[in-house]
Protein backbone atom coordinates (compact mmCIF):
# COMPACT_ATOMS: atom_id res chain seq x y z
CA UNK A 1 0.00 0.00 0.00
CA UNK A 2 3.00 2.24 -0.49
CA UNK A 3 3.53 4.95 -3.00
CA UNK A 4 6.17 4.00 -5.53
CA UNK A 5 7.21 4.22 -9.17
CA UNK A 6 3.84 2.84 -10.25
CA UNK A 7 2.49 6.33 -9.70
CA UNK A 8 4.87 7.76 -12.25
CA UNK A 9 4.30 4.86 -14.62
CA UNK A 10 0.55 5.40 -14.43
CA UNK A 11 0.96 9.15 -14.95
CA UNK A 12 3.04 8.50 -18.07
CA UNK A 13 0.63 5.98 -19.54
CA UNK A 14 -2.25 8.32 -18.67
CA UNK A 15 -0.56 11.15 -20.55
CA UNK A 16 0.10 8.94 -23.57
CA UNK A 17 -3.47 7.63 -23.67
CA UNK A 18 -4.94 11.12 -23.36
CA UNK A 19 -2.64 12.36 -26.11
CA UNK A 20 -3.63 9.47 -28.37
CA UNK A 21 -7.30 9.99 -27.65
CA UNK A 22 -7.01 13.70 -28.34
CA UNK A 23 -5.07 13.18 -31.55
CA UNK A 24 -6.60 10.08 -33.15
CA UNK A 25 -9.88 9.21 -31.49
CA UNK A 26 -11.83 12.31 -30.57
CA UNK A 27 -11.55 14.44 -33.75
CA UNK A 28 -12.82 11.87 -36.30
CA UNK A 29 -15.67 10.75 -34.08
CA UNK A 30 -16.82 14.22 -33.13
CA UNK A 31 -16.55 15.48 -36.71
CA UNK A 32 -18.58 12.52 -37.98
CA UNK A 33 -21.16 13.20 -35.28
CA UNK A 34 -21.32 16.84 -36.28
CA UNK A 35 -21.71 15.80 -39.90
CA UNK A 36 -24.53 13.44 -39.03
CA UNK A 37 -26.20 16.19 -37.01
CA UNK A 38 -26.02 18.43 -40.06
CA UNK A 39 -27.36 15.68 -42.29
CA UNK A 40 -30.28 15.01 -39.98
CA UNK A 41 -31.05 18.72 -39.74
CA UNK A 42 -30.98 18.95 -43.53
CA UNK A 43 -33.19 15.89 -43.84
CA UNK A 44 -35.72 17.32 -41.42
CA UNK A 45 -35.64 20.61 -43.27
CA UNK A 46 -36.21 18.87 -46.58
CA UNK A 47 -39.09 16.92 -45.09
CA UNK A 48 -40.62 20.14 -43.81
CA UNK A 49 -40.23 21.78 -47.18
CA UNK A 50 -41.74 18.77 -48.95
CA UNK A 51 -44.66 18.84 -46.56
CA UNK A 52 -45.27 22.50 -47.23
CA UNK A 53 -45.02 21.86 -50.94
CA UNK A 54 -47.51 19.02 -50.63
CA UNK A 55 -49.92 21.19 -48.66
CA UNK A 56 -49.64 23.92 -51.25
CA UNK A 57 -50.21 21.47 -54.12
CA UNK A 58 -53.16 19.97 -52.33
CA UNK A 59 -54.70 23.37 -51.77
CA UNK A 60 -54.08 24.23 -55.39
CA UNK A 61 -55.68 21.01 -56.61
CA UNK A 62 -58.66 21.63 -54.38
CA UNK A 63 -58.98 25.15 -55.74
CA UNK A 64 -58.83 23.92 -59.32
CA UNK A 65 -61.37 21.23 -58.60
CA UNK A 66 -63.69 23.73 -56.99
CA UNK A 67 -63.37 26.11 -59.93
CA UNK A 68 -63.99 23.33 -62.42
CA UNK A 69 -67.02 22.16 -60.54
CA UNK A 70 -68.41 25.68 -60.47
CA UNK A 71 -67.76 26.09 -64.15
CA UNK A 72 -69.44 22.79 -64.98
CA UNK A 73 -72.45 23.82 -62.92
CA UNK A 74 -72.55 27.14 -64.72
CA UNK A 75 -72.41 25.44 -68.12
CA UNK A 76 -75.18 23.03 -67.22
CA UNK A 77 -77.27 25.92 -65.96
CA UNK A 78 -76.64 27.85 -69.14
CA UNK A 79 -77.57 24.87 -71.30
CA UNK A 80 -80.72 24.37 -69.33
CA UNK A 81 -81.84 27.97 -69.67
CA UNK A 82 -80.92 27.95 -73.32
CA UNK A 83 -83.00 24.83 -74.01
CA UNK A 84 -85.90 26.30 -72.06
CA UNK A 85 -85.68 29.41 -74.17
CA UNK A 86 -85.56 27.35 -77.38
CA UNK A 87 -88.58 25.35 -76.33
CA UNK A 88 -90.38 28.54 -75.42
CA UNK A 89 -89.51 30.08 -78.78
CA UNK A 90 -90.63 27.00 -80.70
CA UNK A 91 -93.85 26.96 -78.77
CA UNK A 92 -94.43 30.62 -79.54
CA UNK A 93 -93.65 30.16 -83.24
CA UNK A 94 -96.00 27.20 -83.43
CA UNK A 95 -98.71 29.12 -81.67
CA UNK A 96 -98.32 32.12 -84.00
CA UNK A 97 -98.24 29.88 -87.07
CA UNK A 98 -101.33 28.01 -85.95
CA UNK A 99 -103.16 31.20 -85.24
CA UNK A 100 -102.18 32.48 -88.66
CA UNK A 101 -103.41 29.31 -90.34
CA UNK A 102 -106.66 29.43 -88.39
CA UNK A 103 -107.15 33.05 -89.35
CA UNK A 104 -106.52 32.45 -93.03
CA UNK A 105 -108.84 29.43 -93.03
CA UNK A 106 -111.49 31.49 -91.30
CA UNK A 107 -111.08 34.30 -93.90
CA UNK A 108 -111.34 31.81 -96.74
CA UNK A 109 -114.47 30.29 -95.25
CA UNK A 110 -115.91 33.74 -94.85
CA UNK A 111 -115.13 34.49 -98.48
CA UNK A 112 -116.71 31.24 -99.62
CA UNK A 113 -119.77 31.99 -97.57
CA UNK A 114 -120.01 35.44 -99.13
CA UNK A 115 -119.68 34.19 -102.71
CA UNK A 116 -122.16 31.39 -102.03
CA UNK A 117 -124.57 33.94 -100.62
CA UNK A 118 -124.17 36.09 -103.68
CA UNK A 119 -124.69 33.19 -106.09
CA UNK A 120 -127.66 32.00 -104.03
CA UNK A 121 -129.11 35.46 -104.04
CA UNK A 122 -128.77 35.75 -107.84
CA UNK A 123 -130.36 32.31 -108.30
CA UNK A 124 -133.19 33.13 -105.93
CA UNK A 125 -133.78 36.36 -107.88
CA UNK A 126 -133.91 34.51 -111.19
CA UNK A 127 -136.15 31.84 -109.65
CA UNK A 128 -138.44 34.53 -108.30
CA UNK A 129 -138.57 36.14 -111.71
CA UNK A 130 -139.37 32.84 -113.37
CA UNK A 131 -142.00 32.23 -110.73
CA UNK A 132 -143.56 35.60 -111.25
CA UNK A 133 -143.47 35.11 -115.01
CA UNK A 134 -145.30 31.90 -114.58
CA UNK A 135 -147.81 33.54 -112.35
CA UNK A 136 -148.36 36.51 -114.69
CA UNK A 137 -148.13 34.29 -117.72
CA UNK A 138 -146.34 37.04 -119.38
CA UNK A 139 -142.83 37.85 -119.60
CA UNK A 140 -141.59 40.46 -117.52
CA UNK A 141 -139.64 42.99 -119.30
CA UNK A 142 -136.34 42.65 -117.72
CA UNK A 143 -135.39 46.11 -118.51
CA UNK A 144 -138.67 47.58 -117.17
CA UNK A 145 -138.48 45.64 -114.00
CA UNK A 146 -134.78 45.71 -113.37
CA UNK A 147 -135.22 48.13 -110.55
CA UNK A 148 -137.86 45.99 -109.00
CA UNK A 149 -135.78 42.90 -109.35
CA UNK A 150 -132.70 44.51 -107.82
CA UNK A 151 -134.82 45.71 -104.94
CA UNK A 152 -136.06 42.18 -104.48
CA UNK A 153 -132.62 40.70 -104.70
CA UNK A 154 -131.40 43.17 -102.12
CA UNK A 155 -134.23 42.25 -99.84
CA UNK A 156 -133.38 38.51 -100.02
Amino acid sequence: MNINLTLIGQAISFAIFVWFCMKYVWPPISSALAEREKKIAEGLNAADRAKQELDRAQAEAEQILRETRDEAAKIVEQARSRSNKMIEEARETARVEGQRMIDSARAEIEQEVQSAKLALRAQVASLAVQGAERILESSVDEKKHADLLDKLAAEL
Binding site: N4, L5, T6, S13, F17, V25
Partner: peptide, 29 residues
Amino acid sequence: MGFWSIHLDSMFWSILIGVAFLWLFRRVA
Protein backbone atom coordinates in the same frame (compact mmCIF):
# COMPACT_ATOMS: atom_id res chain seq x y z
CA MET B 1 12.16 -1.69 -1.72
CA GLY B 2 10.33 1.51 -0.75
CA PHE B 3 9.78 4.01 -3.53
CA TRP B 4 12.00 2.34 -6.11
CA SER B 5 9.62 -0.37 -7.08
CA ILE B 6 6.79 -0.80 -9.52
CA HIS B 7 3.56 -2.78 -9.36
CA LEU B 8 3.75 -4.95 -12.46
CA ASP B 9 0.18 -6.20 -12.14
CA SER B 10 -1.36 -2.72 -11.82
CA MET B 11 0.69 -1.43 -14.72
CA PHE B 12 -0.05 -4.49 -16.86
CA TRP B 13 -3.80 -4.37 -16.39
CA SER B 14 -4.06 -0.62 -16.62
CA ILE B 15 -2.06 -0.45 -19.83
CA LEU B 16 -3.76 -3.53 -21.30
CA ILE B 17 -7.17 -2.00 -20.66
CA GLY B 18 -6.11 1.43 -21.85
CA VAL B 19 -4.75 -0.04 -25.08
CA ALA B 20 -7.87 -2.13 -25.57
CA PHE B 21 -10.06 0.93 -25.05
CA LEU B 22 -8.08 3.09 -27.45
CA TRP B 23 -7.80 0.28 -30.01
CA LEU B 24 -11.57 -0.15 -30.02
CA PHE B 25 -12.27 3.57 -30.21
CA ARG B 26 -9.59 4.11 -32.84
CA ARG B 27 -11.03 1.31 -34.97
CA VAL B 28 -14.45 2.91 -34.78
CA ALA B 29 -13.02 6.37 -35.41
